[in-house]
Amino acid sequence: MTGPALLSVEGVAVDLPTPRGNLRAVDHVDLSIGAGRTLGIVGESGCGKTMLSRAILQLLPKKAKLTGRVMFDGQDLVRLDRERLRKLRGRSLAVVFQDPMTSLNPVLTIGTQLIETLQEHLELDSVAAKMRSIELLAAVGIPAPEQRLMQYPHQLSGGMRQRVAIAIALSCEPQLLIADEPTTALDVTIQAQILDLLAREQRRRHMAMIIITHDLGVVAGRTDEVAVMYAGRVVERAPTPDLFKRMRMPYTEALLAAIPKIDAKPHTPLPAISGRPPDPTRPLRGCSFSPRCKYAWAQCLIEKPGLEDADSPGHQYACFRPLAAGVPA
């Protein structure tokens, strides 16, 4: 990391009460990101990526208990009052969720939603807000933007909805954009365009960006740093080239192997990681990856590995039997 952190997440844990007992969705995560930088967070379904982003945004479910600090631009968001938070979320902190319907209101037209956001946070009059809305929709690649203003979210295809959500998120020039699986539902050419669009806007605004994804392909070319999460914890963290060239965690290796390769034959069974992540209401005593890890040994079952520094700068991993350093996976 270069420069002072715009956002620093310090020892954040999220606990959710469930009928089956306490569920620790995020387990003591430390992360930071500077202005103009891009951090990728990758990990398996249910590992806590969305809960972590909601913890940063203070948008956790009501019953959730959050510990730790979320320092943004010098203030702890955990302790900020609701009104100041709401203002901050509209302006400085923006988010694009995995499911665009989460950020879009189904009963309002696209136009109303964009125009209201712009009017509220940028204090534009209605004519200026409408003009800006059309520009924003065109910028995110929506054909016939003027007509789309009159449409409701359900009348758009999934990809179009995500573009609209991105347009709304970018509309107030945020300092930090959290994109939770922003292109997961989109095809490759549009994915490339949207990631380019985000990169372009980021450079232009010197905006910091957190891209949450399960696709190592997406983080490979487009992030400065990557954090790999498993069962609520960050298990490996490194500058992007280092992560791919000198990965130390068996989990990172397995994740890379499970990607369908374009040069493989059809109907080849994929090297899926066997089993499932542990039930988060029944945390394991040892390494949470141990039931699925082909390198696990006795120590892994009884002790939890902490994040250790690797030889290369900025690289950390949590594993008792790391892959050999310097051996490309």
């Binding site: 054909p143 490759v188 050419t189 549009i190 490339a192 190592l216 490979a220 070319g221 791919f244 060239k245």
Partner: peptide
């Protein structure tokens, strides 16, 4: 074009700069 645009999990492969040029038509 679709085949070219597949993101490759290798940081040395720079992503093709939005291969599909122009706006998708309506």
């Amino acid at each position: 074009l679709l085949i070219e645009a597949i993101p490759v999990p290798d940081p040395d492969v720079r992503p093709a700069e939005s291969v599909a040029v122009g706006e998708p038509p309506s």
